[in-house]
């Protein structure tokens, strides 16, 4: 695996984005990274556009729900902080 020398972050992990880290354990001081295939969701299929008669707030709320649904480990509470 190529490495970004300066930052010591494996570039494939950094840039390709096909895999998601689902767990990092430290064994003997070394990170053991567990990867799995990331969801390959193309949100454009989910009408990321305001529908006729939909208020901007209703639209943002709907988009938020989509994002929450398709992001691994997202916070599902209706009102998050910050």
């Amino acid at each position: 695996m190529r490495e970004d020398k300066e930052n010591k972050v494996p570039l494939e992990v950094l840039l390709d984005g096909r895999n998601a880290i689902v767990g990092i354990d430290y064994v003997g001081g070394q990170p053991q990274v567990e990867l799995r295939d990331k969801l390959s969701i193309d949100l454009s299929q989910y009408d990321l556009q305001r529908m006729e008669g939909e208020s901007p707030l209703a639209y943002v709320t709907r988009v938020r729900e989509l994002f929450v649904k398709y992001t691994p480990n997202a916070d599902p509470t209706p009102e998050t902080l910050r």
Binding site: A20, V22, L48, R50, T71, D75, E79, R82
Partner: peptide, 29 residues
Amino acid sequence: TDATLHDTFRLAQKLTSVCQTEGTAYNIM
């Protein structure tokens, strides 16, 4: 815009490949 919202989704997905995310928060402004 719709496109910047999409960028946010994409970045959040990408982030899961460089660190372990937990509790990703999409806050409504």
